[in-house]
């Protein structure tokens, strides 16, 4: 490497500009680093966005139990559906397919889970509401989906859900579907 390389030669030209160029470059690097951070900031921002719009039916909870006025003038059909994610061998069912409720009334629903395997397992139910517009009106004081559920090998259990539909629910919504998908949460066990 005894031979010269042309870079020194060019370096001479740019050295004149160096302070200013270095300054601009530094700011741009900062901008790039900030945008990398912004990518991660999108995660909490997205959660906020979801809460506002009800996108994907994400429900935050639990809420304090508040006694609303009960709107007996209308009845909402609430359907419960359950899904097992791939690789989740539990039996997982809603014990009632649907209930009819008046907005404002507190209702309890029961779900059943059974671990048929020979190993202890941890499951996490992920809730989702359809139509997503209804999400913000579904209030839960208790839900098995708020935390991970542990079942020993062969163990089965009833799991409660206590919810109410906010009476401010827009009048065109007459059916709400509450979906729960059970995932194997062994990798995320708390």
């Amino acid at each position: 490497m005894g031979s010269h390389s042309p870079k020194e030669d060019v370096g001479k030209h740019s050295i004149k500009q160096a302070p200013k160029s270095g300054n601009t470059a530094f700011k741009l690097v900062l901008a790039a680093v900030a945008m990398f951070g912004f990518g991660f900031a999108l995660v909490p921002l997205y959660d906020v966005f979801c809460e506002i719009t009800g996108i994907n039916g994400k429900i935050t909870g639990p809420v304090e139990r508040v006694e609303h006025w009960v709107d007996t003038s209308r009845t909402i059909k609430v359907q419960f559906i359950t899904t097992n994610n791939a690789g989740m061998p539990w039996e997982f069912d809603a014990l009632q397919e649907q209930v009819k409720v008046h907005p404002g009334a507190w209702t309890q629903a029961e779900f059943w889970a059974l671990n048929p395997t020979k190993e202890d397992m941890v499951g996490q139910a992920v809730p989702s509401v359809s139509p997503s517009e209804a999400t913000e009106y579904v209030q839960k004081t208790e839900c098995f989906c708020f935390s991970q559920q542990s079942l020993k090998a062969g163990e089965g259990r009833n799991m409660p859900l206590i919810f109410s539909i906010d009476p401010r629910l827009p009048p065109h919504i007459r059916t709400i579907t509450m979906s729960y998908t059970i995932f194997d949460a062994g990798a995320f066990a708390e």
Binding site: A31, V33, A34, F36, G37, G39, L42
Partner: peptide
């Protein structure tokens, strides 16, 4: 602005 987001 966006390549760092892809990296993220």
């Amino acid at each position: 602005a966006v390549m760092p987001v892809l990296a993220g």
